[in-house]
Nucleic acid binder design. Structure first.
Length: 467
RNA sequence: GUCCCCUUCGUCUAGUGGCCUAGGACAACGGCCUCUCACGCCGUAAACACGGGUUCGAGUCCCGUAGGGGACGCCA
């Protein structure tokens, strides 16, 4: 049997971390077994669904590299089919019309709760034959849940779960306004789409038990279930779609690489021995549901950053330049010149060694982007005094005659100049750094000089010496 | 309140009855390297929630307690 999985978010907000991981697991599982991964937008609640949210889900998934094998399906497009199924169940007396008002239901819930019951609807309409006058009033359709015995589900992640059927409410499948509810829609759509494995957050575990009975009522095969634990915030509080968790796009804006996010999300709740750095290729080869943990895990930015550092360093210089330029031009409030872009690319080996995020990389790239005359930072200025300036002056003389202009030769000449003047390398390297970059922090000063080239380097030195 | 689920270093996790004196990674701390900042390298500290069983033997199986989470909508 070919594996078919789906990611089915509701378009009521952005794509959050938990949703992204659910999508990733579904996608990986489908790829692993050479099956299909589908996307379905659960927009049965029209009031809360927005097209902005749909766009955010699409862009978030695209950023992660998770692609649906078919065009996304909008659940609301299938409502005719959902209603058809509900009517069929009604005819078969597996479902019934409920004429209770919202007030009545609230009252029932209050009562049941005070009595310590799990089931909150008292089923007063279940065995009531609707009269002609009943039928003039609005009604919802409820599904009949079994009254006796227990329901057992064998979840691929959570194991065996047992519930006494008396706890199960006859839930509404069609609202009084005639629209289908989520509970009906998921079941019908999962069946129609041929979903073989439902992988979703374990906040749906309780629903799974109810939905199972709907599958039975329809006389359909039930997909295999896998309920993965939720992701919590760093402080242990809930981090899911209904609260203020950050959208996946925020992480992109922070300068996180999608490879790092994928790797991080994968390792959150899933493991393969001691493996930490896992490429998508390996993930597809290794991913399985048995290795998904059952306990919720906390989101840890530090670890994400560590992974990001790793992937950033392994990215090509060219790619990194293309990521950095837009951020850089925002920082400088001007276009990034082609000279600057070229310098950044050549200086990338040193820059990427010093950055955890793309944003940081852009900030570090500023030293190569600014035109002369450069601004000397306040705390850096103290490195330029009469003594150090005279050192830079003799260095300038020594360097002016150089023919080969690479890191090694530059290091040699700076060291020689230091020895000549009876000082430590440090004492000339810092003033040199300040003179060239305006900052006390930069990649190796020899690398910086190579990147700037002879002309620009000597030019910048001269500016400082003259003053 | 009721129902369901979960519980190994601060965090993510390895562990499927003897290989556990509990391993790895991130973070922390110390050192080395060093032209600044980083990187890198070496090292240190750090956990089986608790209580009962089962067993020759339990982190691993069972029960209970505590703590945490989820669900209880005409939301998804």
């Amino acid at each position: 049997m070919k594996v078919v999985t789906r990611f089915a978010p509701s378009p009521t907000g952005y794509l959050h971390i938990g949703g992204a991981r659910t999508a990733l697991f579904n996608w990986l599982f489908a790829r692993r077994y050479e099956g299909q991964f589908l996307l379905r937008i659960e927009d049965t609640d029209k009031k809360r669904s927005t097209s902005e949210a749909v766009d955010k889900i699409f862009s978030g998934l695209k950023w992660l590299g998770i692609e649906s094998d078919k065009p996304a399906l909008f659940q609301s497009d299938n409502s005719t089919r959902h209603i058809e199924i509900a009517n069929k169940l009604l005819k078969q007396e597996k479902a019934y019309r409920c004429f209770c008002s919202l007030e009545e239901l609230t009252e029932m819930r209050k009562k049941a709760r005070s009595e310590g019951k799990t089931r909150l609807y008292d089923r007063r309409c279940r065995d009531h034959k609707p009269t002609a006058s009943d039928l003039t009033r609005p009604s919802s359709i409820r599904i009949k849940m079994p009254k006796e015995n227990e329901t057992l589900i064998n979840d691929l992640v959570q194991g065996e779960i047992k519930v006494t059927n008396d706890n199960l409410d006859d839930f509404i499948i069609i609202r009084p306004d005639g629209t289908p509810t989520y509970m009906l829609a998921v079941v019908v759509d999962d069946h129609d789409m041929g979903i073989t494995h439902i992988i979703r957050g374990d906040d749906h575990l309780n629903n799974a038990i109810r939905q199972l009975h709907l599958f039975h009522a329809c006389e359909w095969d039930t997909p295999k279930l896998a309920h993965i634990p939720l992701i919590h915030g760093h402080d242990g509080t809930k981090l899911s779609k209904r609260d203020g968790a950050l959208g996946i796009d925020s992480y992109a804006e922070m300068g996180i690489l999608s490879e790092a996010m994928n790797n991080y999300l994968l390792r959150l709740g899933w493991s393969h021995g001691d493996e930490e750095i896992i490429s998508t290729k390996k993930a597809i080869k290794w991913f399985n549901l048995d290795a998904v943990g059952r306990a919720p895990s906390r989101f840890d930015m530090e670890k994400l950053l560590n992974l990001n550092t790793h992937y950033l360093r392994n990215s090509s210089n060219k790619d990194l330049v293309s990521y950095v330029i837009p951020i850089l031009s925002k920082l400088m409030e001007s276009e990034v010149s082609s000279i600057a872009a070229d310098r950044i690319e050549r200086g990338m080996p040193g820059l990427k060694q010093r950055s955890k995020t793309i944003v940081e990389l852009a900030q570090n790239s500023l030293i190569y982007s600014k035109e002369t005359p450069i601004l000397i930072q306040k705390n850096a200025a103290e490195h330029l005094n009469t003594q150090s300036i005279s050192l830079l002056s003799s260095l300038h003389q020594n360097m002016a005659n150089m023919r080969k202009w690479d890191q090694d030769s530059l290091e040699k000449i700076v060291r020689t100049t230091a020895t000549e003047n009876n000082i430590k390398l440090k004492q000339i390297a810092q003033p040199l750094r300040v003179a060239l970059t305006g900052s006390t922090i930069s990649p190796s000063i020899f690398e910086v000089m190579e990147v700037f080239g002879k002309k620009e380097t000597l030019n910048r030195l001269k500016t400082v010496i003259k003053v």
